[in-house]
Write a protein that binds this DNA or RNA. Sequence first.
DNA 1: TTGCGTGCAAAGGTTTTGCATGGCA
DNA 2: TGCCATGCAAAACCTTTGCACGCAA
Lengths: 147, 147
Amino acid sequence: MKNEYRTKARSLIIEYLKGHSGKRFTAKEIFDAVKDDENTVSRTTIYRNLERLCDQGNLVKFKEPNQDSWFYQYSDTYQHCNTHMHAQCAVCGRIFHLEDVFLDGFAKKMKLVYGFDMDPSKSLIIGQCESCRRKAGKKIRNVDVEQ
Amino acid sequence: MKNEYRTKARSLIIEYLKGHSGKRFTAKEIFDAVKDDENTVSRTTIYRNLERLCDQGNLVKFKEPNQDSWFYQYSDTYQHCNTHMHAQCAVCGRIFHLEDVFLDGFAKKMKLVYGFDMDPSKSLIIGQCESCRRKAGKKIRNVDVEQ
DNA sequence: TTGCGTGCAAAGGTTTTGCATGGCA
DNA sequence: TGCCATGCAAAACCTTTGCACGCAA
């Protein structure tokens, strides 16, 4: 078992991700965000820490259509991710954790009708969340007030 | 509107994809498959044709977890893809088209419980298909008979 | 002091672009 | 002939790796 050290770089990354929990970022965005006039965290370190956080289960790593780079999203509740399904808002990128009970009926039907054994933890529902739908209604000249 | 020419390269690519409809390939795999002793289609051409096929709606392009490159899968029925949901087998990669009626209940519940407007065409269910589950049962010393 | 973490530079791999050439209609 | 498509080489990106040095415990 490896001992884990608390370093400046790692703290900066985790702080940033935690501070924006629920939003998704590319490695590049995190690199830019963590850097300021005095300090910089190398890309290598960013990648290595992101990978570690994924392994530890605090980070979700996923792709979006037509995007070259991976997205990372911090989630305190991700520990349970191997057991349940997620929905992601196509607008703001937030990931929602769906209750298992909610899925039971669907999974059963999938099995019955298609003979398909679904793996909820790997499946992803895409759509628009409530708050983004509300915002969309308030859009002025097709420009977002905030993202 | 652009006129489309029938060229050797494009025919080779489409033929290969059609001949293996339901399977998924990376650009590299298609590059290797299309090449033989006499002919070769450049990577550039592969990518340009794959992109065009996607635009035309005959090809699905998607990522899989922890894979660097995109996967492409030919589908004659993909024309309807903007209206319905898909399930993908994690083992063989085949994509199944789910009936719309099948989803109605689920979508309604999503809206009701989470206020989430799902976009079936972009959502993906991952799991194991019937035939792969059967094969898995027949596995000998953890080696697949065929993939 | 030990060994984990970081940074640099370089490599690896996939995909895109510019430009001249080739081929379909 | 007039476009469209192809191929080559190079570039653009994102991500990973090797190695020496720095820092936490």
